[in-house]
Structure formats: structure tokens, C-alpha cells
Simulated assay, not measured.
Amino acid sequence: MTGEGSGRGSVGRVAERQARVAEYVLEKGSVGIKDLTDLFGVSLITIHRDLDELERQGLLRKLRGHVTAQPTSRFDSSVRYRLRTATAEKEALARSAAAQVRPGDSVILDESTTALMAARLLPEKSPITVITNFVMAMNELHGLRGVDLIMLGGEYLPALEAFGGAVCEASLSVVRADVVLMSTSAVSDCFALHQDQEIMRGKRAMMNSAKRRILLVDHTKFDKVALHRLAHLSDFDLVIVDAKVSEAQIQELQENEIPFEIASL
């Protein structure tokens, strides 16, 4: 045993382990609690403490003998969690997305962490205009030379660190951008799905305000379930996926004539 549960481990190591536990459960979907003790080399008491904290954050759900990462609105809305999952894949998607943007373009970014990674690359395309409801993207881009930033207002959503609601949607109705870069909660049967209806409405408004629509989805989003249909994948001009998507998922995209690109890791 590592002794993490005894109090000798630092707060930083505990947080890092909890992040690894959460990412592992998300990847697997459902995991036995005893299996986690073996995998992470900690006691049953320690892993229960980790899982209690992750459940408190809304990241996982503890059930009898196992833990699950099935999507819920709270789970999907956790920026704190999404920032630390599938980071290499999201960076690859962001690079491919940035390659679709030209100097002088106006770009809408949603509140996804994948779009945030794309935001970090957009100054290379300056002069550029960025329109976003995501406070984290604003913090990345404000004050940079060659970047004109338009912040969408509305109701502030703390879990997302973003603005939404009717005011945000109304703001989008008076702009017309060259491209929107966005992500979503899940993809199933060639539909982009989202767990939160209000967030989904904002994403649809973004789609309606852009000439080109680009969806960025890493492999963890495929064959997952979320409550609401955002759009069929054919409604996007390009779907960018990472290299870990399965052959069956690629075949499904091809059979449905979905324009897609695989981002190299």
C-alpha cells in the first residue's frame, strides 16, 4: 500500500490520484471498487474516500460494489473534471481545428474544453475575431494583439464558467461568423447529444450563427448516452475525431456520408 489513506500523502498527490481514478472510470464506464484498490495500490478505506469526494463533485456515482461514470447533467457540466480528461486527444483535435481557420476569420467558440484548447492556438491566425460565452477562453485571449474578442453575456453558469440562457442566444442572433468550433457530451447513431437542454439551445444558436460548423469529438464521446439530440452529424460541415476512434465508428461515419477528419495524436 502507498499510505495515501494514512494522511502522509500530500494534498497534491491525493488530488492527482483522484483525477486518475476519475479518468479511468470515465474510460471504462463502470469499475468495481475493489479493482480500483488493486489498480491504485491503496486501501479500501482510501478508495472510498476518493470516490466520496469525486461523487460530491458530481464526477462519478458510487453504487453497491462499483462506481460508474454514466453522464448526468452535473457530470457533464464540470469544467474542473473535463479539463483533466483526454487532454492529448483534445490537443490533437484543437490542432486540426485551428488548421481550418484562416487569418481574418471570425470564430465562435462554445464552452467546451476542446474549444478552449483551440482558443490557445488561434492567436497564430491573427488578425482574428473570436466570439465566445466561455470565460476561460476569454481569459486566454483578452489583450492579445491581433485578436478582437466578443464576449457573449447572459446568465452566468458557475459550473461551466460560461454564460447561457436567452440573453446569450439573443446575442448570437445578431452575429454571423465564418466558423464555429464546438464539442458535445456524446455521439450515438450519428447524432450529437447533450445532457443539458439549456446548453444545447445555446449550441444550436451558435450553429445557426456560423457559415461553417465544425464538431470536435474525442473517442470517449462515442457510443455514450445523453438526454437531448443536438444535431445529426450531417448538419456539420466537418467532424474531427481523434485517432483512437474504433474501426466500427469510422465505418459508421463513412456509411452515413459524414464529412470527417482524423486528428493525429
Rank of each mutant, 00 (worst) to 15 (best):
V25I: 01
L26F: 12
L26R: 11
E27F: 05
G29F: 04
S30G: 04
S30F: 05
S30W: 00
G32A: 10
G32Q: 09
G32D: 05
K34I: 13
K34H: 11
D35S: 11
D35Y: 07
D35C: 10
D35L: 15
T37P: 02
D38I: 15
D38M: 11
L39P: 07
L39Q: 12
F40T: 08
G41T: 02
G41P: 08
G41F: 05
V42R: 00
V42I: 11
S43N: 00
S43Y: 02
L44M: 08
L44Q: 13
I45T: 02
I45S: 00
I45G: 00
T46A: 07
T46Q: 04
T46E: 08
I47G: 06
H48W: 09
H48R: 11
H48Y: 07
R49F: 04
R49Q: 09
R49M: 03
D52T: 15
D52H: 15
D52W: 14
E53Q: 11
L54D: 13
L54Y: 07
L54K: 12
R56F: 11
Q57C: 14
G58M: 05
L59C: 15
L59V: 07
L59S: 15
L59F: 10
R61F: 05
R61A: 08
K62G: 06
K62S: 07
K62F: 03
L63G: 08
L63P: 03
L63V: 14
L63T: 14
R64S: 05
G65F: 04
G65I: 11
T68I: 12
T68G: 01
T68P: 03
A69N: 02
A69G: 04
A69W: 01
A69S: 04
Q70C: 04
Q70G: 01
Q70W: 04
P71K: 06
P71N: 14
P71W: 11
R74C: 07
S78L: 03
S78E: 06
S78P: 14
S78C: 08
V79I: 03
R80Q: 14
R80K: 14
Y81K: 15
Y81G: 15
Y81Q: 14
R84V: 15
R84K: 15
R84M: 15
T87G: 02
T87N: 10
A88S: 12
A88W: 05
E89K: 08
E89N: 13
K90L: 09
K90E: 02
K90Y: 06
E91Y: 08
E91N: 13
E91L: 10
A92N: 04
A92P: 03
L93V: 10
L93S: 14
R95M: 03
S96L: 02
A97M: 01
A98I: 12
A99L: 04
A99Y: 05
A99F: 01
A99T: 02
Q100Y: 03
P103W: 01
P103D: 06
P103R: 06
G104Y: 11
G104K: 09
G104W: 09
